[in-house]
C-alpha cells in the first residue's frame, strides 16, 4: 500500500511537469498550427538559466523567476526571427515543424557550448521527507505540486476571464474569423509564446529540482508532452493537463510491475494505442456535428 502511495506521489509530480509542457505545446499547435519541436529546449533553458543564476549566488525562487522571464523573451525573439517570417510566407505546417527541429538543435548546441555536456544539479540543501499515507514527500516537492497547480489555475482564469485570453481561445478556434473581428494576431501570438515558454520553463525548473539537468533533457519531455496532447485531443488545453497527469501516473504505477528502464516504454505504448484507437483524443469534440 505504502509503495503504491509513493508511486502515486511520484506520478503526480512527474505528471504535473508533463502537463505544464504539454499545455504550451497544445496551445501553440492550436494557434500556429504546428508542433513546436523546440519546446523541449525551452524546458532545458528554464532549468539551465536557473542553474546559472543560482551559480551567481541568487536564491532559487528569484533565480527561477528570472529564468522564466528570460525563457519567455528567448521564445518571443525566436518567433520574431524565425516563425513570423515563415508565417508571412504562408509556408505549410510541415515547414514550420522542420524549422522548429532546426531551432531545437541550435539551442541545444549553444547550451552545450556554454554549459558543457556534463550533468548538473541545483545546489539545494538536503530536505527531510514528510510521510503521507506511507509515501515520502519532501517539502520542496509539495511546493512543486502547488506551483504547478497554481500556474494552471492562473492560466485558466486568464483564458476565461480576460479579453486577450478569450481572444487567444478565439484565435485557436478560428484564425480567419479572429482576423475578421479585428483581433490583433501579432499580439495574440506574443502572449501565446510568453505563456508557452513560461510554462515550459517552470516545467524545466521543477525537473531540475526533482532530478538533474542535462542538455538533451528536452527531447524526452517533449515526447511525453506530445503523448499527453494526443491523449487530450490536440489543441485542447484541459485535455493536455489531464493527459500529462495520466501519463505521469501511468508510467510510475507501471513500476509496480516493471523496472525503471522500461518506464518510458509505458508512455509511448500508450501513445501508439491512442493513435490506433482514439486518434481524436479522449476528451471529445468541441463542435457538434451536423
Amino acid at each position: 500500500m505504502a509503495i503504491i502511495a509513493q508511486f502515486i506521489v511520484n506520478g503526480i509530480i512527474a505528471g504535473s511537469t508533463y502537463a505544464l509542457v504539454a499545455i504550451g505545446l497544445t496551445m501553440i499547435f492550436g494557434i500556429l498550427g504546428f508542433i513546436n519541436f523546440s519546446h523541449g529546449e525551452l524546458v532545458m533553458l528554464g532549468a539551465y538559466f536557473t542553474f546559472a543564476f543560482m551559480a551567481f549566488g541568487i536564491n532559487l525562487p528569484l533565480a527561477a523567476l528570472l529564468s522564466i522571464i528570460l525563457v519567455a523573451i528567448v521564445a518571443v525573439i525566436i518567433d520574431i526571427a524565425v516563425y513570423k517570417p515563415l508565417r508571412k510566407k504562408e509556408v505549410d505546417s510541415l515547414s514550420l515543424l522542420i524549422a522548429s527541429i532546426g531551432v531545437s538543435i541550435i539551442l541545444q548546441s549553444l547550451a552545450q557550448l556554454y554549459w558543457g555536456h556534463d550533468i548538473k544539479v541545483f545546489n539545494l540543501p538536503a530536505a527531510t521527507p514528510i510521510e503521507i499515507f506511507g509515501a515520502n514527500i519532501t517539502p520542496i516537492q509539495i511546493i512543486m505540486i502547488i506551483i504547478s497547480a497554481a500556474s494552471m489555475v492562473l492560466l485558466f482564469a486568464f483564458l476565461n476571464m480576460t479579453r486577450i485570453g478569450t481572444a487567444l481561445r478565439a484565435t485557436s478556434d478560428n484564425r480567419d474569423m479572429a482576423q475578421i473581428v479585428g483581433i490583433d494576431n501579432d499580439r495574440v501570438i506574443m502572449v501565446l509564446w510568453v505563456i508557452g515558454a513560461a510554462f515550459a520553463a517552470i516545467g524545466g525548473i521543477l525537473i531540475g529540482i526533482n532530478t538533474n539537468l542535462q542538455i538533451g533533457m528536452g527531447l524526452m519531455i517533449l515526447l511525453k508532452a506530445l503523448t499527453a496532447i494526443i491523449m487530450g485531443g490536440v489543441g485542447n488545453i484541459r485535455g493536455a493537463l489531464i493527459g500529462g497527469i495520466v501519463i505521469g501516473l501511468a508510467e510510475n504505477l507501471a513500476l509496480i510491475e516493471l523496472t525503471p528502464q522500461y518506464r518510458d516504454m509505458v508512455a509511448f505504448t500508450l501513445m501508439i494505442l491512442l493513435l490506433l484507437f482514439k486518434p481524436e483524443g479522449i476528451f471529445g469534440k468541441k463542435e457538434r456535428i451536423g
Binding site: T166, M177, E287
Partner: peptide
C-alpha cells in the same frame, strides 16, 4: 465558419466588439 465554436455565445458576441 463564422463563429468561434468553443466560445460561448456571450464570448462570441464579446469578440464581435473586440476592437
Amino acid at each position: 465558419k463564422n463563429v468561434f465554436p468553443s466560445l460561448t455565445v456571450k464570448e462570441n458576441l464579446a469578440m464581435g466588439a473586440y476592437t
